[in-house]
């Protein structure tokens, strides 16, 4: 059937699209972040559970992580092609920090999520775990592993 996104959905989207895009930037980089956010919102709002969800923001955070993980796995070849064939962007694009992209490449997507939510969003581990769909202990493990991966850069 044909349907149109509701006004409520649009309000939900507009209230958190910015923070989700920053979060997604930490997970997949600035070039793919808008795609991941769009895909995540369509996936979440197309779910039959969407209308029963109490906390849409938390639900969208989880969906962004899920989409980012799949995107991360499936997009390597496509990304390489796009990088070879891309055209100049028309949207606003902040300066690309290649050093930090190189650094974050050492982390898994879940480790990036834990880092972004802990250090950018300033959330405690239990809240990070809630947004990632994992336990507080798992969040701490992800952060610990991330620090080990970044040992050289941190020193």
């Amino acid at each position: 059937m044909l349907s149109v996104m509701s006004t409520r959905d649009e309000e939900i989207y507009r209230s958190c699209a910015g923070e989700l895009t920053r979060y997604a930037t930490g997970l997949v980089g600035p070039f793919d972040a808008p795609d991941v956010v769009t895909d995540a919102f369509l996936k979440a709002s197309g779910s039959s559970r969407w209308d029963q969800v109490d906390n849409h923001r938390a639900y969208l955070y989880r969906t962004v992580l899920t989409v980012a993980m799949d995107h991360h796995r499936s997009s390597r070849a496509r990304r390489a092609r796009e990088q070879r064939a891309a055209v100049p962007a028309v949207a606003h694009q902040p300066e690309i920090d290649y050093e930090i992209l190189d650094v974050v490449e050492r982390l898994s997507v879940k480790q990036r999520a834990a880092v972004m939510l802990t250090y950018w969003s300033d959330l405690p581990a239990d809240e990070v775990g809630r947004l990632m769909g994992v336990s507080e202990g798992t969040v701490k493990r992800h952060l610990d592993r991330a620090r080990k991966r970044l040992k050289e850069w941190l020193s």
């Binding site: 996104m5 699209a17 930037t25 930490g26 972040a33 930090i100 974050v104 972004m116 950018w120």
Partner: peptide
């Protein structure tokens, strides 16, 4: 690290 990543964030995609 987190701040430099977030600083690269493009505009949010349109609804």
């Amino acid at each position: 690290l987190a701040e430099r990543l977030a600083a690269m964030s493009p505009d949010a995609p349109p609804f």
